[in-house]
Amino acid sequence: MGSVLLVLGSCTSLQVGAALAVHLFALGGSTGTTLLRLGLAALVLLLVVRPRVRGWSGLQWRAALALGLSLGAMNGFFYAALSRIDLGTAVTVEFLGPLTLSALTSRRLRDLLWVALALGGVVVLGLTGEHHGGSLDPLGVTFALLAGACWAAYIVTGARVGRVTPGHGGLAIATAVGALALLPFGASGALQAVTSPNGLWLALGTAVLASVVPYSLELAALRRLPQRTFGILLSLEPVIASLAGWVLLRQSMTALGGLGVVLVVAASAGATATAGGGPREAARRSARKGTDEPLEHLTTSGG
């Protein structure tokens, strides 16, 4: 239950931060906003965590670098999508990334059934989430799909960082790497935003709510949950995004969209209820296979 609350808290904080970021687009553009989000988040994490990297191995540095590049690309593509389509719709399309990862890494039929149910809810939300009355912006959808692919990569690399680096040091370094990767593309927009009235405070709020809090909670959850279960639980993301868009950005929500919410919540609840007992189930699998594979590895890897 604690892991579920971590994911729920992450999703809520992330979408409130995304709603704040929409107001920054007019000041610094989507790329400048992304750079501010990750750059300020990296500063906060580095100051608070103070990662001890002198003794890091090559494996730990490679893991943090891979997570950082995934973070930078995921956020860059997502904010580019958000500048063209609604928050709920963008997250719904983006969610196809972790949903596909859950399907590919699962070997149990019931997991695939929960994935199928979540996919149905995602499709309904995607079809009803846009409030402009016309067809979805194709470039916005493309950006959201690319963000989804990077989201799947983030889950895999985040689980690896959680295994090989202690505390939140790996996350702090990875966030800094993501910001540095975006620096050539968003520096001018970021500078324009922070020199605008209230722009710096708005950017700091976005960084904390959309990066520091959710990524810290997700890293903790990834240490406790299999990747497939984590990916299915993230189906709550489109639901919370639709609610945040409705409440904070006045983006519409239809009755059919409500059906999509119900389907996604049912899939998340079902995935949680049948997750399988965590370490005890892993121990039983290990005993049946006659292996001595560490429980920590079994409980953080998919399949």
Rank of each mutant, 00 (worst) to 15 (best):
I155S: 02
L69M: 06
S211P: 04
L146V: 09
L127W: 06
L46S: 01
L24A: 13
C11L: 11
L256P: 01
L14P: 06
F143Y: 08
V213R: 10
C150T: 14
R228A: 13
P51E: 10
P166I: 05
A144R: 00
S242G: 03
F185S: 07
G140D: 00
G290Q: 02
T100M: 05
L248V: 08
S268M: 10
L182M: 13
L36W: 10
R108A: 03
G302W: 11
F25V: 10
L99S: 03
W114T: 13
L46H: 01
W246A: 12
P294K: 01
G277R: 08
S13A: 15
R280D: 11
W151K: 01
L99Y: 05
H132V: 03
R84T: 06
A103W: 00
A283R: 14
T254R: 03
G120T: 12
C150G: 08
P51V: 06
T272L: 14
L146D: 07
H297A: 14
L200D: 11
G257T: 04
S242D: 01
G129C: 13
S211K: 05
G167S: 02
L47D: 14
T142R: 09
E281W: 06
Q60A: 00
G257F: 01
S135H: 09
G231D: 12
A283E: 15
W56P: 02
V265T: 14
R37Q: 15
S235W: 05
A42S: 06
C150K: 09
L234G: 09
L27A: 04
G303Q: 09
L35N: 00
L180Y: 09
R107S: 02
L71G: 02
W114C: 08
D137T: 02
N198E: 11
V156T: 12
E281P: 00
G278M: 10
G277L: 08
V7R: 11
R224Q: 13
T89G: 04
T206W: 06
T272W: 07
N198S: 12
W56T: 03
D137S: 00
L249V: 00
L295A: 09
V22K: 15
V53I: 10
Q60D: 00
A159N: 05
L27W: 04
H168M: 13
S268V: 10
H297N: 06
G17F: 09
S70D: 04
G126K: 00
G39W: 14
L65V: 11
S286A: 08
A153M: 15
G245D: 07
S252P: 05
S252E: 07
L127R: 04
A118R: 08
C11M: 12
